[in-house]
Amino acid sequence: MRLARGLLLLTGVGFGLWGVWLMRDFTSEQLISMGTWLAGGVILHDAIIAPVTVLLGVVAARLLPGGTRSVAAIAFLVWATLTVAVANVLSGQGGKPDNDTVLHRPYGLSWLILTIAVAIAAVFVARRHPRALQEPKDEESPGPQG
């Protein structure tokens, strides 16, 4: 265990240093741009995406009736992470004006349909099996419906 951890640690540091070595001939302009994107991603997540998610959770806990909160949370998880995963095609950026074989689908419409589908599925589950996505209350009631 100790040996395995030590080896992992050393290999990891070695990999990281090799990565830095590969940047040795980057111009300062390239390095600044790379650094901006590296830091920007962390800031975007830690200072905006994560707090907003927490805040939405707090608001949802106040507004939604108890039995529906888990369903809402999981529906949000699926919808939000999927939206981030396809944000590139939703952005409207990229591609080339003279090439209509790239980015030529109605992505906004698909996203709208996806959003509605997730919402319908959430309402359906919340009505039929409101506690489906929660932990059972305790060991005595591990309901088969749970």
């Binding site: 990891g12 990565g19 980057f26 390239q30 590296l38 980015l103």
Partner: peptide, 29 residues
């Protein structure tokens, strides 16, 4: 999506940062 809103070379930077990412992942594990 062929969108490059940066000054670095995608191919070389994506490669270099991959080594850093996997290195940091091994340290983390």
């Amino acid at each position: 999506v062929q969108w490059y809103p940066w000054e670095f070379s995608f191919r070389r930077t994506h490669e270099a940062v991959a080594w850093v990412a996997i290195g940091a992942l091994l340290v983390h594990i």
